Amino acid sequence: MTHDMSTTFLWFADVAALINVTPGLDTLLVLRTSVAHGRTGGRAAALGILAGCLAWGVATAVGLTALLTASRVAFDVLRIGGAGYLVWLGCSALWQARRRPAGDATGAGTAVAAAPAPAPAAAPAPAAVPASTGQARRAAFRAGVGTNLLNPKAGIFYLSLIPQFVPHGAPVFRTTLLLTAVDVLELALWYWIVTTTAAALGERVRRPSFRRRMEQVGGVAFLGFAANLLLAERA
């Protein structure tokens, strides 16, 4: 049984890795947030997504995700709610891009240029930064949780994939949680790579026009995912 479990975990890790690195809604959210708010913002969004994955894993272990395939009403409620949330994210991104002028003073390049200001004027700044940073992290975390938990495809992914890797005779609840942990650890590593790369890109490309373009691309992509979710059918 131990050999079977080891083989099962290796196979699952390979399959899950291929699925996790495939570009999708969650990766887009982490990428966009990392460019806009740096590594801390991107990793807060990633933590929200990982929390959602853990919740789906527990729901699969206790059999709750089976409701998504057994109940049309449950699937439709989650599908429509998720699509509505994605529309809100998409419209918010497009609105942010529209209201940010070409010479936006919030761009990183402008911030660097303002750094040589007299020392006394810079003293109050540290008190204001943590609050806004904390708010941005909390908003990013909530967005990560929302996009994951309101996506019925995420639940169906866990329901359809994980049970296939539970060996015959193995404890279903414990094995499902262990497989979920493998998936979450792989996702954490992937999002660490994404946030590090995207944040570095955002720091290098300091032009406000680049950030505005990223908001536009992200907004359109969110709306596209919303349309896809509205057209989705149960597996």
Rank of each mutant, 00 (worst) to 15 (best):
R99Y: 10
R99E: 11
R99S: 10
R100Y: 11
R100N: 00
R100E: 08
P101Y: 12
P101T: 08
A102C: 11
G103F: 08
G103C: 08
D104G: 05
A105V: 12
A105S: 13
A105N: 11
A105Q: 14
A105I: 15
A105R: 12
T106K: 12
G107E: 07
A108R: 11
A108C: 14
G109F: 14
G109V: 14
T110N: 13
A111S: 05
A111K: 06
A111Y: 03
V112C: 09
A115W: 06
P116W: 06
P116E: 12
P118H: 15
P118K: 09
A119I: 05
A119G: 04
A119V: 02
P120E: 11
A121N: 12
A121E: 11
A121M: 13
A122G: 13
A122D: 13
A122Q: 13
A123I: 04
A123G: 11
P124V: 07
P124M: 08
P124E: 06
A125D: 14
A125R: 15
A125P: 10
P126H: 14
A127R: 11
A127W: 06
A127Y: 04
A128W: 06
A128R: 02
A128V: 07
A128H: 06
V129A: 12
P130I: 07
P130T: 05
P130N: 15
A131W: 09
A131Q: 08
T133A: 14
T133P: 06
Q135K: 08
A136Y: 11
A136E: 13
A136H: 10
A136K: 08
R138D: 04
R138V: 01
R138A: 04
A139D: 13
A139K: 04
A140W: 00
A140N: 01
A140S: 02
F141K: 00
F141Q: 01
F141L: 05
R142M: 12
R142A: 08
R142I: 10
A143F: 02
A143S: 07
A143E: 05
G144T: 03
V145L: 06
V145W: 02
G146H: 09
G146D: 02
G146I: 00
T147M: 01
T147V: 07
T147A: 01
T147I: 04
T147R: 06
N148F: 08
L150M: 07
N151A: 05
N151P: 00
N151E: 08
N151I: 01
N151W: 09
K153I: 12
K153Y: 13
K153T: 10
A154P: 05
A154K: 08
A154V: 06
G155I: 10
G155R: 04
I156Q: 00
F157H: 04
F157K: 00
Y158N: 03
Y158R: 02
Y158L: 01
L159G: 02
L159S: 03
L159C: 07
S160A: 07
L161W: 05
L161V: 12
L161C: 07
L161D: 03
L161R: 02
L161G: 07
I162G: 01
I162T: 06
I162D: 00
P163C: 04
P163D: 03
